[in-house]
Every structure is written in structure tokens, then in C-alpha cells.
């Protein structure tokens, strides 16, 4: 089987500082990979390099495209990369307002991505927007409301709907449950897990919440000071951590 994403030797420096260094991994279709580490460990830098939001100083991000097979997205032309990020890729931001258009209706937010890939029939777009609102458990009567009047949890779910409506194969998530209260978090986790399974999505999830990765991720990478210090099966890394930093991280979690 061809990996959906092959990451080879990604490096990113901010001046003399290391953003992330020498990161390599393969992600196969249907796999969910978690990246954990404390603030400043380079996990968001890495995610942005993978998703094409930042240009890495070195390394390759090879994505198995539908049309041409594996292609390096770092050296790909800008229009090609933009097309990928509108179709096969999705990016869920920590703050929903970074991923939504706050002055456009909920339905419009979902419809925009459909229009970007060529959908023109208003009725169809609206129907699909309503269908997706339902899937992320937002009442269809809210279709014409602007996200600025939604709660934080609803905004996050709308952002997910907007991202998944085009049936992407790879989703990048940056702290998708950060800043939400626990009951909303549980609902979102359940939703994400169901969608990942139904749509056969692959995902890369950056978070500092170990409970979130245990529930969502098959595999886990632990980062510290821009480098990967440990990687493996999620439950193995969490239950039998090998590296000093991972042991510290796991033993620092408060028990409820």
C-alpha cells in the first residue's frame, strides 16, 4: 500500500532558533496520527509545514494525489497546492474564527468550499450545507445565521463541516478541542471519531491533551525542542513510554 503522506526530513528554522528539525514519518490511508508536546515544542510549526502554510527550509512532504500519484507538495506550484488544500486536504484551526468567515452565514461557510471546487447550483449547495449542519449536530434553522452568533463549540463544529464537505482524504487539526469545555469536547471527539471512520479519513492531530490522542489517534509522535523524541502506537507510547520526556509528560497528567 502506498502511504497517503510521506514526510521526509522536515526542517524549519526561525533565524537561529529551531522550529522543527529532522521530522520524518509515513501516514497510511485511514490512519490518525497524534503529535503531542508542550508549548514551543514545534508541533504547530510542523503541522503548518505539512499543510503548506509555512515553507520548510528542507525536506519533502509527498502526498499521494488522486491524479498523478505521489507528488512533493513543497516544490509543487502554488495553484496546485491551493487546489489540494481546497479538495483533498482540510485544516481545522484551534480558533474557529481563523477557519471561518465570520460575516458569512453558516450555510455560506460550508457552500463556499463547494463553490471553490466548481459547484454552481444554489439548491444543491444549500441542501448539502444543511446535510452537513445536521451531521455536525447544528440545527438546520441556523443555516442563515452568522457564526459570530454561535457558541464556541458550535463554531468549531461548523469549521469541521466546512472542511469536510468536499470529502477530503487528509485532515490537519491544530488543537481541535482546545478552549472548549469538557462536555462540548466529548461531543466533538465522538463526532470526529465517527467521521474519521465513516469517511476513511487520515488525520494529523496536534494537541497537548493526552486523553484526546488516546481516544482519536492510532499513532503518536512526541516532540520536544523541535525534535521527535519518541514515536509509536498511541497506547504503547502512553502506557510504556521509553523517553525521559515522555515519561515526565505522562506522569504529569492529573487523574480525575
Amino acid at each position: 500500500m502506498t502511504p497517503l503522506l510521506q514526510v521526509k526530513g522536515i526542517e524549519k528554522h526561525y533565524g537561529a532558533r529551531i522550529g522543527c528539525s529532522d521530522v520524518s514519518f509515513d501516514l497510511y490511508p485511514g490512519e490518525v496520527m497524534g503529535i503531542v508536546g508542550e508549548s514551543g515544542s514545534g508541533k504547530s510549526t510542523l503541522l503548518n509545514c505539512l499543510a503548506g502554510h509555512l515553507e520548510p527550509d528542507a525536506g519533502q512532504v509527498i502526498f499521494d494525489t488522486r491524479a498523478d500519484g505521489p507528488a512533493d507538495t513543497v516544490t509543487m506550484s502554488e495553484p496546485e497546492r491551493r487546489m489540494l488544500s481546497r479538495t483533498d486536504w482540510a485544516f481545522v484551526h484551534q480558533h474557529a474564527r481563523d477557519g471561518l468567515r465570520m460575516s458569512v452565514s453558516a450555510g455560506g461557510n460550508i457552500g463556499e468550499r463547494l463553490m471553490a471546487v466548481g459547484d454552481r447550483h444554489y439548491g444543491t449547495i444549500r441542501d448539502r450545507a444543511i446535510d452537513w449542519l445536521g451531521r455536525v449536530e447544528i440545527d438546520e434553522t441556523r443555516v442563515d445565521d452568522r457564526p459570530s452568533v454561535f457558541s464556541g463549540g458550535m463554531q468549531q463544529r461548523l469549521q469541521i463541516a466546512r472542511n469536510l464537505v468536499t470529502g477530503p482524504r487528509l485532515v490537519f487539526m491544530d488543537e481541535p478541542t482546545g478552549g472548549l469545555d469538557v462536555s462540548v469536547q466529548a461531543r466533538l471527539l465522538d463526532l470526529l471519531r465517527g467521521l474519521v471512520r465513516e469517511m476513511g479519513l487520515s488525520a494529523v492531530i496536534v494537541t497537548h491533551d493526552l486523553a484526546v490522542v488516546r481516544l482519536l489517534a492510532d499513532r503518536l509522535m512526541v516532540m520536544k525542542d523541535g525534535r521527535v523524541v519518541e514515536a509509536g502506537l498511541t497506547d504503547q507510547v502512553l502506557d510504556d513510554p521509553q523517553h525521559a520526556y515522555t515519561q515526565l509528560l505522562v506522569s504529569s497528567v492529573l487523574q480525575v
Binding site: 509509536g232 502506537l233 497506547d235 504503547q236 502506557d239 510504556d240 521509553q242
Partner: peptide
């Protein structure tokens, strides 16, 4: 048992 399941390395 956990070694067999791959939970422990």
C-alpha cells in the same frame, strides 16, 4: 499479556 498485545515494548 500487554507485551503480547504490543502495549508494552
Amino acid at each position: 499479556m500487554r507485551v503480547i498485545y504490543g502495549n508494552y515494548l
